[in-house]
């Protein structure tokens, strides 16, 4: 059974904090196997947008659909079970549990696997994310790269159809970033990925499409190379248009 229409569709997603509009009427459509990079200056609403999609934040307006199912009113755990997972900017790991136990939780409660089926899937995710050697280690004692990998592995273990990555490469060395890029590439085939990151070459390597957010609004969305060359992108980052007028 092939689903008709896109895998994921967001329409007019809006979030206000008091009088400040953090995300304003953003539309986003994704197909299976598609990877989209999201860039924009600090405060553009990138992380907020991911929070609204995964459900850790409640949208004030707009709708979200995954595989034709309305996700707008679902709670965070229900959306995770429904096929959306996010690797957070600051690793949200279970400090006193082992790496294996950290992954068993999303495998059981997110992907709804049981018993040996869940164990096999956890082993697979451990191999995929290069954490096999750390499987028995307590998460609180891991280094930064391992904790970032574990955060990504937890999101993958929930078997999402839509995987949201929030600055998973930030703070890593060049070599470590390349490891992360390899990892993301290996995950692309049967899901959609939205990757928020400040590191252009990481997105260029993994995403065929690029979205630019500025002041909560989506100002560009298209093929990576086209958007990258667009002068509006330059003005957002250089502040040419705004500051020239001021």
């Amino acid at each position: 059974m092939t689903p008709v229409g896109p895998l994921f569709q967001a329409n007019g997603v809006t979030k206000r904090f008091g009088g400040f509009t953090a995300v304003s009427g953003v539309d986003l459509t994704l197909g299976t196997g598609e990877s989209v990079g999201v860039i924009g200056p600090n405060g553009a609403g990138k992380s907020t947008l991911l929070g609204l999609i995964v459900g850790s934040l409640r949208a004030d307006a707009g709708t979200l659909e995954l595989e034709g199912r309305d996700m707008s009113r679902l709670s965070l755990p229900d959306r995770v079970q429904g096929g959306i997972a996010r690797a957070a900017q600051i690793p949200q790991t279970f400090a006193r549990l082992t790496v294996r136990e950290n992954l068993r939780l999303p495998a059981v409660f997110g992907a709804r696997l049981h018993g040996a089926e869940a164990s096999d899937w956890v082993d697979e995710v451990l191999t995929l994310t290069g954490l096999t050697d750390h499987a028995g280690a307590v998460a609180g004692e891991l280094g930064l790269l391992s904790r970032k990998r574990l955060e990504l592995a937890k999101a993958v273990a929930a078997r999402p159809r839509l995987l949201l990555l929030d600055e998973i490469a930030a703070g890593l060395t060049q070599h470590e970033i390349e490891t992360m890029i390899g990892l993301v590439k290996s995950l692309r085939s049967d899901r959609a990925i939205v990757w928020v990151e400040h590191i252009p070459f990481a997105l260029r390597e993994t995403c065929e499409r690029l979205v630019v957010l500025d002041k909560g609004e989506k100002i560009l969305d298209g093929a990576f190379a086209t958007v990258w060359e667009d002068e509006r992108l330059q003005s957002v980052y250089m502040g040419v248009a705004d500051h020239a007028a001021a």
Partner: peptide, 24 residues
């Protein structure tokens, strides 16, 4: 058990437990 593991996970980090699909 797995339910007990969810409880231990919640004790460590309730937000991460929710993000793993646990109905806290």
């Amino acid at each position: 058990s797995d339910t007990g593991l969810a409880l231990l996970g919640m004790r460590d980090n309730p937000q991460a437990a929710e993000a793993s699909g646990v109905n806290v």
